[in-house]
Simulated assay, not measured.
Amino acid sequence: MSILLVTSSPRGAASHSTRVANPLPHIDPDYSTGIYTPAEARTQRQAEVVGVSDTVLDELFAADTVILATGFINFNISSTLKSWVDHVARSGKTFAYGDAGPKGLVTGKKVYIVLASGGIYSEGAAVQFDHAIPYLRSVLGFLGMTDVEVIRIEGVGMGADAVAAALAKASTKVDAIVAATGSAERVAAAA
């Protein structure tokens, strides 16, 4: 089994999502033009930035399981994880358009989203502010990845007891996933 772990927290070692689960450069004009330029006609810079994307695509297609670990930042995912999405969402590579509309080309993957947040966004009045999970489910589904499970680490901004409780709850969920899949490896062991 091949596991791809994408960590994206800007908090480094202090990250709660990374505890349970290499930043990519943000896309730029050289990337945006380079992906539509034939390889032999790309500038050196275009070749470099498209090469980063090609490497990320190779990792994605090689993986059986994908773990996306991110913090909840301003009601959405981190810009680092958004960069990963931008690098893998490529027409003709991970999705294509046909007579029936768009078709995801990345299929047969199990995806786990590990989302750490200072508050509680899975229930109550704050649910409406969670743009991270709906966005990720939409973009992953567009790419063909529809088997998505969410592991939340919520309330970590509410004190040390809340952090301990959130990590324990997430670990229990990870253990249940491992038990259900019969896998000897923990999902979080990839971290």
Results as ranks from 00 to 15, higher is better:
Tyr31Pro: 08
Leu60Val: 11
Val106Glu: 12
Ile177Val: 15
Ile151Val: 13
Thr172His: 12
Lys110Met: 12
Leu57Met: 13
Ala160Cys: 05
Leu5Met: 15
Thr80Tyr: 14
Lys110Gly: 13
Thr146Asn: 04
Gly12Met: 05
Pro38Glu: 07
Leu60Cys: 05
Ala62Leu: 10
Ala168Thr: 14
Val111Cys: 03
Leu115Gln: 01
Pro10Asp: 04
Leu60Ile: 06
Asp30Thr: 01
Gly98Met: 06
Tyr36Ser: 08
Asp28Glu: 04
Val6Leu: 10
Ala14His: 10
Asp99Ala: 01
Gly118Thr: 13
Leu24Met: 06
Glu149Gly: 08
Asp99His: 00
Thr55Arg: 14
Ala189Arg: 12
Tyr121Val: 11
Leu105Thr: 03
Pro38Met: 06
Val139Asn: 03
Val156His: 11
Ile3Cys: 10
Ser183Lys: 04
Lys93Glu: 08
Arg137Ser: 07
Ala160Gly: 11
Gly119Ser: 15
Gly92Asp: 05
Tyr97Glu: 00
Leu60Thr: 03
Glu149Asn: 12
Val178His: 10
Phe61Arg: 11
Met1Phe: 14
Val163Cys: 06
Val88Trp: 03
Thr55Cys: 09
Gly108Tyr: 07
Thr65Cys: 05
Thr172Val: 12
Pro134His: 07
Ala116Gly: 09
Val187Lys: 05
Thr94Cys: 01
His26Leu: 08
Ala191His: 14
Glu149Trp: 09
Asp64Thr: 05
Arg45Glu: 15
Ala13Pro: 12
Gly124Cys: 15
Ser8Asp: 03
Thr18Glu: 15
Ser9Cys: 02
Ala179Phe: 14
Val50Met: 01
Lys169Arg: 15
His26Pro: 02
Ala160Tyr: 09
Met1Gly: 15
Gly155His: 00
Gly182Tyr: 12
Ser2Pro: 11
Gln128Met: 05
Gly108Asn: 08
Ala13Arg: 12
Val114Gln: 07
Thr172Ile: 11
Leu167Thr: 13
Thr107Val: 10
Gly182Val: 13
Thr181Arg: 13
Val156Tyr: 01
Val174Arg: 03
Ala160Phe: 09
Ile35Asp: 03
Ile73Gly: 05
Ser8Phe: 02
Ala132Cys: 13
Leu4Ser: 01
Ser117Gly: 04
Asn76Ile: 13
Ala179Thr: 15
Ser91Asp: 00
Arg152Leu: 12
Ser53Thr: 10
Pro102Ser: 11
Ala47Ser: 15
Asp28Cys: 01
Val148Ile: 14
Ile133Ala: 01
Ser32Gly: 08
Ile120Ser: 07
Arg42Glu: 12
Glu185Tyr: 10
Gly119Thr: 14
Gly104Ala: 02
Ile133Arg: 01
Ser79Met: 13
Val114Asn: 07
Thr43His: 06
Ala166Asn: 09
Val178Pro: 06
Leu4Phe: 00
Glu185His: 13
